[in-house]
Amino acid sequence: MDRLHLMTVFVAVAEEESFVGGARRLGMSPPAVTRAIAALEDRLRLKLLDRSTRHVRVTEAGQRYLDDARRIIAEVDEADEAAAGINAAPRGHLSVTAPVLFGRMYVMPGIVEYLQRYPDTEVSTVFVDRVTNLLEEGLDVGVRIGELPDSSLRAIAVGHVRRVICVAPAYLERHGLPRTPEELARHTIISATGSSAAPEWRFLRDGTAQSLRLKSRLTVNSNDAAIEAARLGLGVIRLLSYQAAPALEKGDLQRVLAEYEMPPLPIHIVHRDSRHGSARIRAFIDLMAARLRAEPALNCASQA
């Protein structure tokens, strides 16, 4: 069998963690997929997949081969697109990652527009509140909030957000307005998404960053849940400004201690470097960058 075809089958099975799922993705029969994997393992003289009645997992050798196979397939696809011409219509599969709430609020509408505009494309998403490794996880494009570490990724700036302190008007009526960061120690604190029971919040005072460790009364692993608890008047929450924007606009939450906020955090679209560039990646980045730059909630660098 063609080696590139075998690689493609292996990547599909590994990513779906299922022979049936890989077959469905490729439009092949499960027996044909099984034969392809067997032929690839025979060619390499390596066991690439561990099979059980419930799961399919890549072996250690299989993980290394998976990373290389993804890169090779991507380069072949990009070479085909380059040969077809710079104006070729986007086609093929695109994988996108972003933070969970940001992905739902801002990336998913862009993905829907992209799929409607380019009918020969497919998109898969990884919306998680952690920094993903695009190369190791086989992802094409990501959205990053915060300063970027040095890397081989290309980055396009699309906006800024701030960390803001918010409370519900009903909470303020009962407990009063905190006027300095230190006064937060007397208030009920809500922490979201991976925060410890004693989160460390940073503030800017006279041009100097200061940290304040606070004890949370409620800690949740979902920004949506934390926002709901704050909206219902439980306590004080720290959010990224885009997360708070809908509730602030409705008046469900109120921003406090704005004069102590840290400098804004940049938002970037990042993608893997490429010799040829990909029509599907270029088109998606252009569309998404235009949408994000037009969002008022994502361009708050100058707001107090």
Rank of each mutant, 00 (worst) to 15 (best):
Arg163Ser: 04
Leu253Lys: 06
Thr219Pro: 11
Leu239Ser: 02
Gly251Phe: 00
Ile227Asn: 01
Ser241Ala: 14
Glu261Ile: 07
Ile189Met: 14
Leu212Pro: 02
Phe203Ala: 02
Leu232Glu: 11
Leu218Thr: 13
Glu182Cys: 00
Val167Pro: 04
Gly235Arg: 11
Arg162Ala: 07
Leu212Lys: 00
Asn221Ala: 08
His187Ala: 07
Pro199Thr: 12
Pro266Arg: 06
Arg174Tyr: 03
Val220Leu: 15
Leu232Ile: 07
Glu182Phe: 05
His160Ala: 13
Arg202Glu: 15
Arg255Gln: 15
Gly207Ile: 00
Ser195His: 15
Trp201Val: 15
Ala155Gln: 11
Val220Cys: 11
Leu214Cys: 06
Pro264Trp: 03
Arg162Thr: 02
Leu240Cys: 10
His187Leu: 12
Val220Gln: 11
Lys215Leu: 07
Thr193Val: 15
Ala244Glu: 08
Arg231Cys: 04
Val167Trp: 02
Ile190Asp: 02
Thr193His: 12
Ser222Cys: 12
Thr180Gln: 05
Ala244Gly: 11
Gln243Thr: 04
Phe203Gln: 04
Val236Pro: 04
Glu183Thr: 11
Arg231Leu: 05
Arg231His: 02
Glu183Arg: 10
Ile190Gly: 06
Asn221Thr: 10
Ser195Glu: 15
Ala258Asp: 05
Gly159Glu: 08
Leu239Ile: 03
Gly207Thr: 00
Gln243Pro: 05
Ser211Gly: 10
Tyr260Arg: 07
Leu240Arg: 13
Ala155Lys: 07
Ile237Asp: 04
Arg231Tyr: 02
Arg179Phe: 02
Leu232Asn: 14
Glu173Pro: 01
Val158Tyr: 07
Gln243Tyr: 08
Thr219Val: 15
Leu265Gly: 01
Gly235Ser: 08
Met262Ala: 00
Ala168Arg: 06
Tyr171Ile: 03
Leu184Asp: 04
Ala155Cys: 06
Pro178Asn: 01
Ser216Lys: 06
Asp252His: 13
Gly159His: 09
